[in-house]
Amino acid sequence: MNLALFDLDNTLLAGDSDFEWAQFLIGQGALDGEIHAAQNEKFYEQYKAGTLDIYEFLDFQLKPLARHSRAQLDAWHQEFMARNIRPIMTDQARAKVQEHLQRGDLVLLVTATNAFVTGPIAREFGIHHLIATIPEQRDGQFTGGVRGTPSFQDGKITRVEDWLEAQGLNWGSFADSWFYSDSRNDLPLLEKVSRPVAVDPDPILKAEAERRGWPVISLR
């Protein structure tokens, strides 16, 4: 059995679901456009630069979930999928996921973006196992906080290993393990697998992949 791990934003998606979700909420009038758009852009630039404080960002990202009922959020998410996400799900990305699924590989989506935003996206790709940052809930409503270790940088390794352990598995259970990512932030997990793949990579990851002889591909 083989393991195939996929990052989501700017890897399987030709865009960033975190950024798109905030822009969608601004368009719904659920967030102050001027203030939130500037903050959203600031955090996105920090992420690309590898300087993001994940807890500061999650405080910003998750608080809007606590301001609205789950029913309203779910209704918005359906519209968000149609307007913002399906148009950036490329045929090449869908085909790459299907390639691993049809071979019988164990396929996981591993993303720093929260599970509320990314769960339906994983299902749309046909991926049944999701490792994402978990928004805290109480009585069925989001609190605005985060539960457990964020799935970011080294945290992705922690979360993947915890998930594998819960299935009675470890890295040695697999003949080969892939991780597909675009971002320098994912170097720790890329170094952990036997077959790292840089997908439409940022300049730092592209240079590192070329130095190490990792495959560099495009799914755009």
Rank of each mutant, 00 (worst) to 15 (best):
L3W: 00
A4H: 00
A4R: 00
A4N: 01
D7A: 11
D7I: 05
L8V: 10
L12D: 01
L12S: 03
L13G: 13
L13K: 08
G15R: 06
D16E: 13
S17N: 09
D18Q: 04
F19G: 14
W21Y: 09
W21K: 08
A22G: 11
A22I: 11
Q23E: 11
Q23G: 15
F24Q: 14
Q28P: 09
L31W: 08
E34V: 13
H36R: 14
H36M: 15
Q39L: 14
K42D: 15
Y44C: 08
Y44R: 07
E45I: 12
E45G: 08
Q46A: 14
Q46G: 12
Y47Q: 07
K48N: 11
A49S: 14
T51S: 13
I54W: 03
Y55P: 14
F57L: 08
F57H: 13
Q61P: 13
L62P: 15
P64C: 10
R67C: 12
S69E: 01
S69A: 04
Q72F: 05
D74I: 04
D74Q: 11
D74T: 13
D74R: 01
A75R: 02
A75N: 04
A75F: 06
W76F: 11
W76V: 08
H77Q: 08
M81F: 09
N84Q: 12
N84W: 09
M89D: 03
T90H: 10
T90C: 12
A93N: 09
R94L: 13
K96S: 09
Q98A: 02
E99S: 06
L101F: 00
Q102G: 01
G104Y: 01
L106T: 06
V107K: 02
V107D: 00
L108C: 02
V110P: 01
T111V: 13
A112Y: 12
T113S: 13
F116R: 10
V117I: 11
G119S: 08
I131C: 01
T133S: 10
P135I: 03
D139G: 10
D139F: 04
Q141G: 10
T143H: 12
G145F: 04
V146R: 04
T149R: 05
T149M: 05
P150E: 07
F152S: 13
D154E: 12
K156Y: 06
V160R: 00
E165Q: 07
A166Y: 00
G168F: 00
W171T: 01
S177F: 00
Y180P: 06
D182L: 06
L187D: 04
L187R: 10
P188N: 08
L189S: 10
E191D: 14
V193P: 02
R195K: 05
R195F: 05
P196V: 04
P196Y: 01
V199N: 04
D200A: 05
P201W: 03
P201Q: 15
P203L: 12
L205N: 10
K206E: 14
K206G: 15
A207W: 00
A209V: 06
A209I: 02
W214P: 15
S218D: 03
L219P: 11
L219G: 07
R220L: 04
